[in-house]
Design a protein around this nucleic acid. Structure first.
Lengths: 223, 223
DNA sequence: GTCTATAACCCGATAGAC
DNA sequence: GTCTATCGGGTTATAGAC
């Protein structure tokens, strides 16, 4: 395990950050670039895009201020790569979860996707915070690229709800509204997790998935 | 109606911002101070605390850069007053909603508080965004003052859930977990509202309150 | 690929005239 | 209470040596 060359990096690794940004295929480039990415995620999560200076990031990665610009065109470029990769992996996480239950019916599919996404947000809450809450700092072109991925995640959840309604196993008066509510619940985990002695990512995932089923299930007050 | 002296102020007023920061008792001080507050809420909501300069705020309020410091001790002080007042009014909104249904039982109380808070977040989404998402920018002392109000809101919701469980009208395996999930759903409205052609604050409030009842109600998969 | 040095600019906050 | 002018320092990004 690489020795941290600057304060803050060890915490980041202990945070599950290194795991998140491991890259077997070296698509992230040389070690310095990966160190910068990890440092940037940690700093952006703690203080936001505008609250983080490129010097902060370089320091945490053990480089001089100019070192950032060897690997990234600008601060926004660095932020964009984090945001794009984070969204790609979140989408992949959701799609994989749904596929893993096969043709199991809407209820199990809904449970799977909410559980997977909630667990993801909790486990990778540092990355998730960066990825969810500073999107307006992206350039318009970059923002649109990320928004396209977000729409795919929304469509995945909405599709499952529609399926369930069509099959008669869900009772959902407003599919778009419930989609938004479910994704809100999941997204917001990144804001507060972890909170004093609360549950593991997996426990939270199960809890939220159960709540999602309660929301969608036919219920007694129907007449 | 006061004529706007700088760009941005009219939008802020159209936004329901002026209404939010109206103050019959003049506790907010002279007109310039109120104009600064409204301008600051608008700017902080759009670009975050660190992304907003005191010059931006002064410009929007039609004052010189130094004008800010006549009415506020610092940028953080200005931010704190917004955050504190916003939280006080949100708490008041929640308490009033619960009181307004009298001794109506847990289900109607839960419905009332979720409906009121959701409607509030949507109607005052500009203020809510500032108040919900930049709390770490407060000084530790100021943060603690605001956190105390947040704990009261959490306790209000948790209390209603506990009441319902005790009375046997709710089935909630994890009261703390559901409290968090409900507040997440409500809080997150500030992040995305308004979204293309979606419902009015009141419609959203009713939808979310109904979803809350579905989550808490006894359900058929109990054995 | 990393450094030192620095350009060009913006920041929060204050001094002092009116 | 508002202004102009400015202090001291931090910002992103680049130039050029090694």
């Amino acid at each position: 395990m690489a020795k941290a060359t600057a304060a803050g990096l060890d915490e980041a690794q202990a945070n599950g950050l290194a795991e998140m940004w491991e890259d077997g295929e070296d698509r992230l480039g040389p070690a310095s670039a990966r160190r910068l990415l990890v440092a940037a995620v940690d700093a952006f999560a703690a203080r936001g895009y505008h609250g983080t200076s490129t010097r902060d990031i370089a320091d945490r990665a053990g480089l001089s201020p100019a070192g950032v610009y060897v690997h990234f065109a600008s601060k926004e470029d660095l932020f964009f790569r984090i945001t794009l990769l984070g969204h790609e992996r979140t989408l992949h996480n959701a799609v994989t979860a749904v596929q893993s239950v096969g043709e199991a019916g809407p209820a199990r599919r809904l449970h799977a996707v909410i559980e997977a996404q909630t667990t993801w947000q909790a486990r990778h809450h540092t990355t998730a915070r960066v990825v969810e809450y500073d999107l307006p700092c992206l350039s318009p072109e970059h923002y649109e690229q990320v928004a396209a991925i977000r729409r795919k995640i929304t469509a995945l959840v909405r599709g499952i709800l529609n399926e369930g309604v069509r099959a008669g196993v869900f009772d959902v008066p407003d599919v778009d509204g419930m989609t938004l509510a479910l994704l809100s619940m999941v997204t917001d985990v990144a804001r507060w997790y972890p909170s004093n002695g609360r549950q593991s990512p997996e426990q939270l995932g199960t809890l939220y998935a159960d709540l999602a089923l309660r929301m969608a299930a036919p219920h007694s007050s129907d007449s």
